[in-house]
Structure formats: structure tokens, C-alpha cells
Design a protein around this nucleic acid. Structure first.
Lengths: 341, 341
DNA sequence: AACAAATAAGAGAACCTTCTCATATTTTGA
DNA sequence: TCAAAATATGAGAAGGTTCTCTTATTTGTT
């Protein structure tokens, strides 16, 4: 059992010097005689001295720590972003506290308070998708405080905050346009419930349709819900009721498996009978070499961290100089699941 | 811009009371007149006072925070475990600091030091798989300090630490025995390099072979490495050189896609030509309804957290009462990728 | 009425680090 | 040789919270 919690005072006592001198040795500043320096150094190592970051943070009012609030750690998109945030932050000497809200707004509010109480130097957050509907007015200040905040992927509205997000409109547009070019006029959409990001993908879809002069039809959109009793059967029913569809654009990976199974169970094939594009490069998409829209996961984490650190380092200096909104491009990767109509 | 960083002193001043009284109101203890209580409360809310957890932790030498060190956050296994740790800890009033080592021992050591410096109350760690070879002797005390530690999945050897792990031997044994029962005598293994957990799965495999009187053959094991130049081709070559194989046991999900592709490219089918069992229920395994060995991901997170919190709460009381090693069972889930030989 | 018990509120110490001041000693330079 | 500069060391405050001690006032009991 090593101690790991010795204090500078104890080190100083053991070395027969003052706290100030021990502090100088450990902090590596000021004048200390070689003899005492060696003595303190060896005792600190012997006692495996680890400075108390609480005291340091209290004194410096700076913790070299950022907080990350995620709506769903298990989602590979977020764990990918997180991984990049962590590495980018650490390379600049910052540690990362990670919080998971499970898409629950009350939890999100609670965790924001915890991060403030821990005096993190900044926060990166992907809010629960219901945050704009569910947030209580008295909790709004949490998102607009003197601690720098960068929103990723989803933002709380009307706050003039710093946001880094993916250009969902363009991604939706590109995929749709590609299908239209290949002659598909009836493109089905499988989409989860009203999450802002997904609605933007649909906006891009509609824009591409409009430009091509193809009328938008509401029945071509299938709303997929993970709490549905039997989504799989509902998809089959939907496909059967829309026999004109020749292509499907699956707006997230949750519904993908059910869509593919539904298609195959009807004796239809991809891409011969249905062209398929999936949003996000999930395992299944990679396995089946599906054409996808690839989100720049790592870049999102990196850029968000860079913005946050910039914000932290010039929070007082020139607050106007910060870019409020950054859009990252999600690109179409053409593989083997799309055919000409 | 709300303040979020007001101090009790400021609250006290604004309310015209002493720091002690303000502290009593906010802390909810002791005697305070209704009048002053109301005054302090309203001012604290107005200034969105958030107590400084650094000062609290410093004073109490207890941070209500646990640290989690993971070798790879992006791995769904670990992000699943993490998610459960976080929720279990939070329900007991603990926050979670998460660190990612990317399987790098130097990073792991650095992050352990950071957690100690932040004075976390306990640590849950899945060490980098090379930790036992690569750890410097002077860093060993990091794993055997006065701060409670629970190892998950992988442990640093010879430390008499608290470990929660999955019964890899039994999982390997069960899967192999199942294949043997169905008449498969030549069972190929696809395995990543020498990670302890994987070696235990192989131990179970060998045990089942021995019990069935089937000789173990080294050439039936294909070592899969993610940094291989072209693993896919090597798998094909291996399959061709071992035509006697009728079943394959894939010991983690990384190699799965290549195995399946290799089989299909040879014009062979699963399960007609090859029975296939995969360790872990990854997306592809679910999609293809493969027979798998399912690891109790959530349970692992929960049990590890329970042990850690128990350890924290009785660290001095009865240190002998803690269970050193907990084995969780990984169960065979029979689906559609295994046939009789 | 007299005294114990309950209520109310402030002063100040401790937690650990960092760093400014203050003081003392040694070295350098002309 | 003497002052100025460099080197060496310690005392002590600040940072924010919690909580013990102390003191004062009010309420309750007989």
C-alpha cells in the first residue's frame, strides 16, 4: 500500500525544509540549493507524492479539466467523437470528465450543475434531443454561463452559443440527388422520431426532390421508433403499400437491420430491387458494403475541442473573435448498394 | 451570462449574514431563523450559486467521484460497461471521470496519476493488455495504493486486488463442447494476439477438446492481427490449408467480417459448410443471427461498481471482508450459424 | 422566578497548494 | 572592498467550504 496522498507539508517535514522550499522543488521554480533539491526529490518519489489537484484548482481557479456531456455513450457515433475529444484535450494538458444523460433532460441539467461545481474550465455537450422542449426556463442559465461551452451535433436554441455540427442538410441532399441522378423518382425514407439532426437530413432530401421537380410525398417517409412493438412487420407493410419505391434512404443505423430484413423477406434484393443508402458507416453497412453518408466523427471531436480550448484561453481577451457555428461536411461514399433505375 | 461561480462569502454578504449562517442554510443543518433562511435561499438561487466541489473535496477529503480507466472507449464492450458503471455510480451519488488509454501503458500510468491527483474516491480499471509486460516496477504502487481499485476484465498480476471478470475459460469451453457434441472434430479458432482474456477462451477450448479426446492442433488456430497487411487473404489461405475444418470459433468481433467474407468468397456457406460461433454479440452477429457467446456487459459494470463502492465505504472498517475475485458467466446463445456435422 | 434546554448566529480553523514578501547569505563586478 | 546582484530559505496569506467553539437570545419547565 503506497500512500499517494502525502502532502507537501509532510514532504517538507521529512526533508527538513520549509513548505515553501518543498513547493519550489516540486513546482520547479525559484532558487533551491542542489542538496535540498535532491533530498526533497528523493523523499517525494519515495512517498509517491501526488499533488492534490483539488487544492491546485482551488488556488488557481483553473482545473485543466473539461467536461463532456453526451446523450448516449453507447452510440458509436458519440463514443467515436468522445475518443477524439479526449485525445485532443489530453494533448493540450486537459483531462476530460465524461457524463452520460441517456437522452434525459433532467439528468442533463443535473450533470451540468455537477460540472460547474467541479469547476471544469469548459464544457462540450450534445444535448438530449428533447432539450428544447423540456428545458425549464430557470435552467437555461446553465447553458449560457461564464464557463465556455461548445455544443456538438445538437444545440440549445436561441443562445448564440458556439456550435459544431454536421451539415445534415447537405448530406441528405447529396444522397438524394445521387439517387435521383440514377433515375430513382420514388425514394423512401426510414427515419427515427423528430430529432433535429434527422429533420435536417429530411430537409436536404426535400430540397433535392424540389430541384429535380419531383414532388415530395409524405407517405414515402416511414417513422421508425425503437419502442415500436414490431417495427419489422410495420416496415414490410409500408414497403408493400408503396410498391413504387425503388430506393430507400435509411436516416440512421437503428432501423437498418429491420429494413434489410424486410426487403429480403419479400424476396427482393439490394440493389437489384431496392437501392439503399444508409446514414452512417455502421458495422452492417461496412459488412454489406452499403453506399453511405459518412459523418466526420473524429473531425467533429477535434474541432469541438479546438474551439473549446480557444474559447477557454481567450475567454476574456477578445470574446467576439469566436466563430459561433461550424458546419462539417458529411460525404457520400459510393459502394455497392445503389443501382441505376 | 450567469455567474455560476459565486461563493458562500458573496452570498452571505449579499444576504447580510455571516458565512457560517449562509453555510448552514445551503448545507441544510443547524439552526437558522426562517427569515434569514429565506433570504439566503433566494439570493443563492438568484446568483445561481453552485458550491465549489474543489473546496468541498479538499475539506472533506472525499470527492464523491470515481475514476474509470478504459483501454478502448470505442469498443462497444467497454462503452457498454462504462454506461452501466456511470449509472450505477450516479444512483449512489457518485460522479464518474472517464479516461481512455488506447491500450497504451504509458498513458495508463499517466492517467492513474491524474486520478490520484484529483483525489477520486476509487478507481475501476481495465488495464491495457500489455500492462503486465510493460509496467515499470516503480509504477506498480499505482495499482496498490490506499485508494480502492477494482479491476475489470483484465488485471495487473500478483497484487491481490479486487477483480471482476468474465469466465472466459467457461465460455470457450461451452462453445467448443457444443460444436463437439454436434460432431465437429476439427474446430478452427480465429484469435487476436495474446490478450489474457482471449488466451483463457483458448484454454476453455483446449479443455473441451481434451475431455472429448480430440487432439489439439496448433495449426487450427489462426492469429489475427489488426495491423496485418491483408488479413482477409491470409484467412483464405489458412482455410484452404486446413480443409478438414468444419467449424470456426471467432474469439472476438474484429476478425469476424474477414472470416465471413473469406468463407463466402470460397463459395462456401454458413452453416452448411462451416458452423460459426462468435464471441460477443456484435452488430454483424445479430444481423446474421450467429450463434454467439454473450458477455454480461451490463452486469460487469454493475458488479464492479457495487464492489468499488463497498470497498470505499468500508475501506478501513473490515478490509478483509472484500471478495477478491468475481467471475461472471458468459453464456452460449444458440442461433442459426451452427449445424450438425 | 429561576434555570435548563433549545434556538440563533458569528469567529475562525482546517483542508493543500502556490506564490508574494521578507530576510539572509553568497557571489559578482569595477 | 563595497555595493549590487544573485542565490537561498522561510513565514504566511489566499482560495471556498465545513464545522467546531463560543456567545447570545429565546423558550420551556417546575
Amino acid at each position: 500500500m503506497s500512500k499517494q496522498r502525502a502532502t507537501i507539508k509532510e514532504i517538507a517535514q521529512a526533508a527538513g525544509v520549509s513548505v515553501a522550499t518543498a513547493g519550489r522543488v516540486i513546482g520547479g521554480y525559484g532558487y533551491v540549493s542542489a542538496e535540498k533539491r535532491a533530498k526533497v526529490d528523493s523523499i517525494a518519489r519515495e512517498m509517491s507524492f501526488t499533488p492534490n489537484a483539488l487544492a491546485q484548482g482551488l488556488r488557481a481557479s483553473c482545473t485543466k479539466t473539461i467536461g463532456v456531456v453526451l446523450s448516449d455513450i453507447k452510440n458509436p457515433f458519440f463514443s467515436g467523437v468522445l475518443s477524439r475529444i479526449e485525445s485532443a484535450a489530453r494533448s493540450e494538458g486537459y483531462n476530460t470528465i465524461i457524463c452520460n444523460t441517456n437522452e434525459d433532460v433532467a439528468t442533463e441539467v443535473e450533470l451540468m450543475k455537477v460540472l460547474y461545481s467541479k469547476r471544469v474550465d469548459g464544457i462540450i455537450i450534445s444535448s438530449a434531443y428533447k432539450v428544447n422542449q423540456a428545458i425549464a426556463p430557470e435552467d437555461l442559465p446553465l447553458y449560457n454561463s461564464d464557463t465556455p461551452i461548445v455544443f456538438i451535433d445538437r444545440a440549445v436554441r436561441n443562445l448564440n452559443s458556439v456550435v459544431v455540427e454536421i451539415d445534415n442538410v447537405k448530406g441528405g441532399y447529396d444522397a438524394t440527388q445521387y439517387l435521383l441522378q440514377l433515375g430513382h423518382k420514388h425514394i423512401g425514407i426510414v427515419a427515427p422520431p423528430r430529432i433535429v439532426t434527422v429533420e435536417n437530413r429530411i430537409r436536404g432530401y426535400k430540397k433535392a426532390l424540389a430541384e429535380a421537380g419531383v414532388p415530395f410525398e409524405k407517405k414515402n417517409i416511414f417513422r421508425y421508433d425503437t419502442i415500436m412493438p414490431d417495427p419489422h412487420k410495420l416496415i414490410i407493410k409500408w414497403l408493400q403499400s408503396q410498391p413504387q419505391l425503388s430506393a430507400i434512404f435509411c436516416l440512421n443505423c437503428d432501423g437498418l437491420m429491420d429494413v434489410i430484413n424486410a426487403i429480403e423477406e419479400q424476396g427482393k434484393a439490394i440493389p437489384q430491387d431496392y437501392s439503399l443508402i444508409c446514414w452512417d458507416d455502421c458495422e452492417i453497412a461496412r459488412f454489406l458494403k452499403l453506399t453511405i453518408v459518412k459523418q466526420p466523427v473524429e473531425q467533429l471531436g477535434l474541432v469541438a475541442t479546438q474551439h473549446l480550448l480557444a474559447h477557454i484561453n481567450k475567454s476574456v481577451a477578445e470574446p467576439g473573435s469566436l466563430q459561433r457555428r461550424t458546419l462539417l461536411s458529411a460525404d457520400l461514399i459510393k459502394r455497392n448498394s445503389v443501382h441505376k433505375k
